[in-house]
């Protein structure tokens, strides 16, 4: 009797699906077993990936088989890695600050530059260009629709930003309240924020529902194969 790999994986996936679904009755050992196995398998797999896809091809192999130039290039990250390893020893933990400082500095520069170039400026430009009637022909929409879309996007952006303006001035009765215009705009902005969060919630629910459908479908297919 030949046991196919698909059958084994189907049985395992079926069992683990039941173990996870047992959380419906609350936290129980079956659910914990499944979680612990997932965590252990994931950790082992990540360690294997780090060794075989990072350390070996990017550090050891260039050091052993690389040219002098490659070895010299590898020496710098190797030194950084050794410095970070010094965190193991409290006395030498300070040496890790050198590599950590380099990583944090480089990471901050990359993130800020990427956010500025890839998000802030393009998004601001897009908001401004929402009223570009010339894009109507490109996007095959009418000018009115372009203006309406642009106005809606602009209003949503402005009102949402106003909602996060918390500056207030004291009133005669001693209470602290924002200006009337800002308060009204914030109220409108709150509607946009609510719609956005509702959309996100709907997306989350749709994603979870799809995952549940996939699992139930797998269970049905598992029984259907027999």
């Amino acid at each position: 009797m030949v046991i196919s790999l698909d059958l084994i994986t189907s049985v395992i996936s079926f069992l683990f699906t039941l173990l996870i679904l047992s959380y419906l009755i609350g936290d129980n050992p079956l659910f914990r077993i499944a979680v612990y196995i997932f965590v252990g398998v994931s950790s082992g797999y990540v360690a294997a990936v780090a060794w075989w896809q990072v350390i070996m091809p990017r550090l050891i192999y260039p050091l052993v088989y690389g040219s002098v130039l490659e070895r010299s290039f590898i020496a710098i990250p190797l030194l950084g890695a050794l410095l970070i390893l010094m965190k193991i020893f409290p006395r030498w933990a300070g040496l890790a600050r050198i590599a950590m400082a380099f990583l944090v500095g480089a990471g901050a520069a990359v993130i800020i530059a990427g956010a500025l170039i890839g998000t802030l400026i393009p998004q601001i430009s897009a908001t401004i260009n929402a009223f570009d009637v010339n894009s109507a022909s490109v996007r095959n929409i009418s000018v009115v629709e372009v203006i309406f879309n642009g106005a809606f996007i602009l209003a949503g952006t402005v009102f949402t930003l106003i909602y996060f303006h918390f500056g207030a001035s004291p009133k005669a009765d001693g209470s602290m309240r924002r200006l009337g215009l800002i308060e009204t705009s914030a109220w409108v902005g709150r509607i946009f924020i609510g719609i956005t969060l509702g959309t996100i919630f709907a997306g989350v629910f749709a994603a979870a529902l799809t995952a549940l459908i996939e699992r139930i479908s797998a269970l049905i297919n598992f029984f259907g194969n027999f």
Partner: peptide, 15 residues
Amino acid sequence: SAQAAPMIQPYYESQ
């Protein structure tokens, strides 16, 4: 994923 689409949609609007 459906849960990430609302946050990615502006990047499409900005082309």
